[in-house]
Design a protein around this nucleic acid. Structure first.
Lengths: 240, 240
DNA sequence: CGATGACTTGACTGAGTTCAAAAGCTGTGG
DNA sequence: CCACAGCTTTTGAACTCAGTCAAGTCATCG
């Protein structure tokens, strides 16, 4: 009961997978959930000898990293608040999910969650649909990386991140004044997302600043002054 | 009954999704299947006003194409015999599935198949697992495109295609003699797969020929003389 | 304060694109 | 059988964007 109440106050309640469930399934899920705070850099799944877990992100960003044999990293996906993180049905996942920022998550043990999926078809269906969306998105992102210039890639990623922050702060005020937030990724990580070098990313930031489209603050602060212009630079934009 | 018998003779029976089903579900599925021949270039799903269908490929190759607003095409996936083609749960799929070669498929009407998925959890589970595998693969492929050189990309794609043909002709003889087959894709399509220009692809083919790793025959004929060397060129190979 | 790590800027290089032309292949019709 | 058109593929040459290497700046923290 207390758990249900906590869920109803949850900031991602409206769009998280749990909102698509029947009351009965949501109750069952609430019984096995553990709310956790996770520091940036910690691994959620993948990598050596790590117990399988599933999570729903409440706050923060998770990066899905493909560690190459030559030691370089490729980021193949980002997960934002309300999204599901986990890889059902396999033990050795081919990639690593790592907290890009400090996180707040609803965590579920692998066995408990998978058991629940077996018995509650609506839960499985919900995760299935999310997976299909992830697949569509991954393919869109792939075309982006395959075809676009450095400027378009950087603009696309900033648009993606900015749109997530805009969704969170729903009062249209921000849209006019310009959107301000801290980037969840370092320059290196941005480069790893886009298939670029960090120097190239830095130069594209400089170019966007010179055009007055963005402003960088201290640390990872970023202000998008002209979202429309940024969208133009992104060309065929990947809409999340 | 006749349908079940036909299924048992099916060339992809051992690895297709239908083999993972209970006998009862497989029976139901066999009742709604239509075996079809589809000419190269025809669209399986996506694009304007096309009824939703699902297919399992028996023979041939399907390309998943992302049509960009600027008119260029990006191929974001290839589907081979025994694989499932379709996008459940949405009407306007964001990409187009097109026959790259002449096909033979088991086709299912969208509504009939989705209804069956609702009532037979093992069918849904099987397609779900395939989707997760597709997602893993798409992400592997993404890192490939983001990081590798033109030579590595061409070698990787040839390895992928060659390994499918090798799996089909199981008698190890081929492995020694060299593997010979017709490429399912034109130079343009290969370029669209890899995020390259067709001239670059052609030059890489020339380079691989000069090194004696492959031989090209007339039309789309290709002979892989040294599979090991090709794998080396592919570096961190994407294993299907 | 100096040390460490993240980011920026500069100069040069090179892989891949672009534009252009030639060569092969396939099918048609005289 | 050859000539031709229409296509795909190959080859050539010039250019350009992003990568590479190398300093230099900035922020944070002990």
């Amino acid at each position: 009961m207390t758990l249900r109440i906590r869920c109803q106050q949850c900031s991602v309640r409206s769009c998280a997978p749990c909102s698509a469930l029947t009351a009965a399934t949501a109750d069952q899920l609430a019984r096995i959930v553990h709310r956790r705070r996770i520091p940036a850099g910690q691994i959620l799944y993948g990598g050596p000898d790590r117990a399988k877990t599933f999570s729903i992100i409440v706050e923060g960003v998770v990066k899905l990293v493909n560690v190459q044999p030559d030691g370089s990293n490729q980021i193949v996906g980002l997960q934002f608040p309300s999204e599901f993180v986990g890889r059902p049905f396999v033990e050795g996942a081919p990639l690593v999910a790592e907290a890009a920022t400090d996180l707040e998550v609803c965590a579920f043990s692998g066995s408990a969650f998978e058991t629940l999926m077996q018995t509650h078809a609506d839960l499985e269906r919900t995760i299935f649909k999310r997976t299909l969306d992830d697949l569509d998105f991954a393919r869109q992102w792939m075309s982006m990386i395959a075809r676009k210039t450095a400027e378009e890639r950087v603009a696309s990623l900033l648009m993606l991140i900015a749109s997530k922050f805009r969704d969170k702060a729903r009062d249209g005020r921000q849209a006019v004044a310009g959107l301000e937030f801290n980037l969840p990724l370092s320059r290196t990580e941005i480069a790893e997302c886009l298939g670029l070098r960090l120097e190239t990313v830095s130069r594209q930031f400089a170019a966007l600043k010179a055009e007055g489209i963005i402003t960088t603050g201290r640390r990872r602060g970023l202000k998008v002054a002209d979202m429309a212009a940024l969208g133009e630079r992104a060309q065929g934009l990947v809409h999340a």
